[in-house]
C-alpha cells in the first residue's frame, strides 16, 4: 500500500512542518503567542500576522536534530520583512551554537516585502551571510522549494547559497518574476501568462537538469522529507578550489548553451532524448535521465 500523499504545494507552512518533522518533535522559537509582528505594516493599513509569515524552531527528521524555518506563502506572498528575515537569520546563527545535523529552509516567497522594502532587502543579505557562516562552520543548510510562490528575488540567491536545494516540479526558482520581466522588457521577451514557458525557464525540472537543484521530488511532503533527510550532515565545504570549480562549471554552462532561448533547446544540448517531452515525464522517468541525487551529491 502506498502511503497517502500530502501535497507540499497546497499545504500551509505549519502543515509542511508537521509533515516534515517527526511527530511531536517541533519546538517553535518566538511562537505566535509572543506576537513578534511587523512594526511597519500597521502604518500602511495592512494586517499583521502573529508569526510575521515564518515559523522557526527545532525538531527532528528521521530522528536527527534539525533547525527549520517555514515561510508561509499565504501571508504577503511569503515576502521577507524586517522581523520575518530576522527570525531566519537568528535561526541560522543558532546553528553555530547548537550544531544540528542541518538547517532546513522551506522557502515559499516572492522575495522582498515591498511594504518594508529596504529592511527586507537588508534582511535577505543578512540571511545570506548567516547561511554562509553556517556552511563555513560545517553545518549543512538545505533549501526546499515547492510552494505556490516559488522562490524569487533575493531569496533565490539565498537558496543558491545553501549546500543543497530540493525542488518539486511545481517549484520555481529565479531571481526575477515572469511578470516583472514582461512589464519591463515586454511580452516578446517573456509572456508571463505562458505557464509552460515559466516552468521551462524557472521550474524544478529545468533547474534540476541545469544542475541548480540537487533533487527533484514529487509534490508530496513525505518525498521532500526523504530527500532532505538524505542531505543532512553532508556539507559542501566552501574552499577556494570549490569556488574555482563552480566558476568553471558556470562558465562552461554559458558557453555550452549560448544562444538558447528556451529550456527545450538547453535540454537538447544536454543530450536529453526527446527534449520536448520533458515537461510530460513523470518524476521517475525524469530522474532516470540523471544521475541519482545521491550520486550527484558526491
Amino acid at each position: 500500500m502506498r502511503p497517502a500523499r500530502h501535497s507540499y504545494y497546497e499545504a500551509t507552512a505549519r502543515r509542511r512542518l508537521a509533515g516534515l518533522l517527526d511527530e511531536g518533535s517541533f519546538r517553535e522559537y518566538c511562537p505566535p503567542t509572543m506576537r513578534l509582528t511587523s512594526p511597519h505594516l500597521p502604518a500602511l493599513g495592512v494586517p499583521v500576522a502573529f508569526d510575521d509569515g515564518v515559523a522557526v524552531g527545532e525538531g527532528r527528521v528521521q530522528g536527527r536534530p534539525v533547525l527549520v524555518a517555514a515561510q508561509e506563502g499565504g501571508f504577503m506572498g511569503g515576502a521577507v520583512g524586517e522581523v520575518h528575515g530576522a527570525k531566519i537569520t537568528g535561526l541560522l546563527e543558532r546553528a553555530l551554537d547548537v550544531r544540528p545535523d542541518g538547517v532546513v529552509l522551506l522557502l515559499d516567497t516572492g522575495g522582498v516585502r515591498l511594504h518594508e522594502a529596504n529592511a527586507g532587502l537588508i534582511a535577505m543579505g543578512e540571511i545570506q551571510r548567516a547561511v554562509l557562516a553556517v556552511r563555513h562552520a560545517g553545518v549543512s543548510v538545505i533549501a526546499a522549494i515547492g510552494g505556490r510562490n516559488g522562490c524569487y528575488g533575493g531569496m533565490s540567491m539565498v537558496a543558491r547559497s545553501c549546500d543543497r536545494i530540493v525542488m518539486s516540479e511545481e517549484g520555481r526558482l529565479s531571481i526575477s518574476g515572469p511578470e516583472v520581466i514582461e512589464t519591463v522588457e515586454g511580452i516578446e521577451e517573456f509572456d508571463s501568462q505562458d505557464r509552460a514557458l515559466v516552468w521551462r525557464t524557472m521550474g524544478g525540472k529545468h533547474r534540476r537538469l541545469l544542475g541548480e537543484a540537487d533533487a527533484l521530488v514529487p509534490d508530496d511532503i513525505g518525498a521532500f522529507r526523504t530527500a532532505i533527510a538524505g542531505f543532512l550532515d553532508r556539507p559542501r565545504p566552501i574552499t577556494l578550489d570549490a569556488l574555482m570549480a563552480e566558476q568553471a562549471r558556470l562558465a562552461a554552462r554559458l558557453e555550452r548553451f549560448a544562444g538558447c532561448r528556451d529550456g527545450v533547446e538547453v535540454w537538447e544540448r544536454l543530450g536529453v532524448a526527446e527534449p520536448k517531452r520533458v515537461p510530460d515525464l513523470g518524476i521517475d522517468a525524469f530522474n532516470a535521465l540523471l544521475p541519482s541525487p545521491a550520486e550527484a551529491a558526491e
Binding site: S156, A159, S161, L173, F190
Partner: peptide, 26 residues
C-alpha cells in the same frame, strides 16, 4: 539591478549571482 531577460533566468542568474556573493564572502 539584475538584468531582466529570458536568457539570464534560463541560465540561473540567481545562482551565478549567489556564486559572486559567495566569492566575496569567502
Amino acid at each position: 539591478g539584475q538584468r531582466l531577460s529570458r536568457w539570464d533566468e534560463l541560465m540561473g542568474n540567481n545562482g551565478v549571482i549567489a556564486h559572486l556573493t559567495t566569492c566575496l564572502d569567502f
